[in-house]
Design a protein around this nucleic acid. Sequence first.
DNA 1: GTCTATAAATGGATAGAC
DNA 2: GTCTATCCATTTATAGAC
Lengths: 208, 208
Amino acid sequence: MARDTRQRILDCSLAMFNAQGEPTVTTNHIADELEISPGNLYYHFRNKDDIIEQLFTRYEARMDEALAPPDGRLPGLEDIWLQLHLVFECIWDYRFLYRDLLEILSRNRRLRIRFARILKRADDRAHAVMRGLSQADVIRAAPAEIDAAATNLLVLATFWLNYAAIRGDRDEQKAIRDGIVQVMMLLSPFLRDAERVHLNRLTRAYTD
Amino acid sequence: MARDTRQRILDCSLAMFNAQGEPTVTTNHIADELEISPGNLYYHFRNKDDIIEQLFTRYEARMDEALAPPDGRLPGLEDIWLQLHLVFECIWDYRFLYRDLLEILSRNRRLRIRFARILKRADDRAHAVMRGLSQADVIRAAPAEIDAAATNLLVLATFWLNYAAIRGDRDEQKAIRDGIVQVMMLLSPFLRDAERVHLNRLTRAYTD
DNA sequence: GTCTATAAATGGATAGAC
DNA sequence: GTCTATCCATTTATAGAC
């Protein structure tokens, strides 16, 4: 049961953080929800930040997987679609991190470094994909434009859920889909005319 | 001196919120910093949220001004540049709002509504500018692409400073300039070849 | 491993004197 | 308008029994 309680605390914390925001959920709230004592919680974790760090480890592994290149061949537009799905769903499952990103990272140097590493990986991946599309002549983009688009992609992915929440979007699944479409539409003006029209049709079908 | 103390509290709060983040600055901290008593602070403001709301009023007026259309004529690329300056500098001066945007808005329904209004205004403005460029044949963009680009612009402007902070950018002035360039580069692929090269040269000169 | 009880510290807020 | 003193509620964290 030892391992079990530890896992239950992590699962419950994640659910509560995501639902109510990390700052408003205290260790007592978590213990209450699980119907265990605060002392028990502190037997398993040094403090709240310890819980967050363990959750971050889960998140990190998941995101590393989502950011891995699919396989050997160069990716086309459909592969990008799929990979964006993996990334956005990971972000959704750990959205409490993104909701109060600066506040959480400012309190913990280790997480700051680990998050920066993930951002770097995502940036590399975005560059690789853009360069791939450019070499395959699917898009036409200067190096500086690729840099800008990659950065733009990172900002969109990182903060899209926050933006959707501020707008008051209710439907969660739709928010994720909208985020993916938003990133795809980022590529639209780089495409040649035929693909450009094609993508616009696809995204419209996807959004409705 | 009554009005004076009230203003000093607001000024000091803004500076401390921006420097340390709103969640970590308590009413006691503010009173300490000003070398007044907590009781005095509570004479002038009902609570911390009251202070934030007053600061928001200042912010709101400033942003409304920054978002106003320059004048009668249709704006060119240079006017956009200027307007982005006004917007980003407003965001910078009230960056504490953006740092913990969801947390702050989740606690206060009135601010949520007021912020949504500003976002709407910004969206309208972005659309108007994009349509203007399109009609003047400076850019080539389908309606769906204009929608996506306007949304993209809003997300970039809203969260750019957060992104810069996570990356570890130190130089504040440069972070603002980078944000403006990032938005301008968003337009790049929509431009015709001559202007596209021109913009890439401009942004490079601006960034170095 | 888990509980009860509680310490220690902090933050928000008010009463009443000056 | 401003200060001192203080209260209440909350949160983190630990000690010690079972």
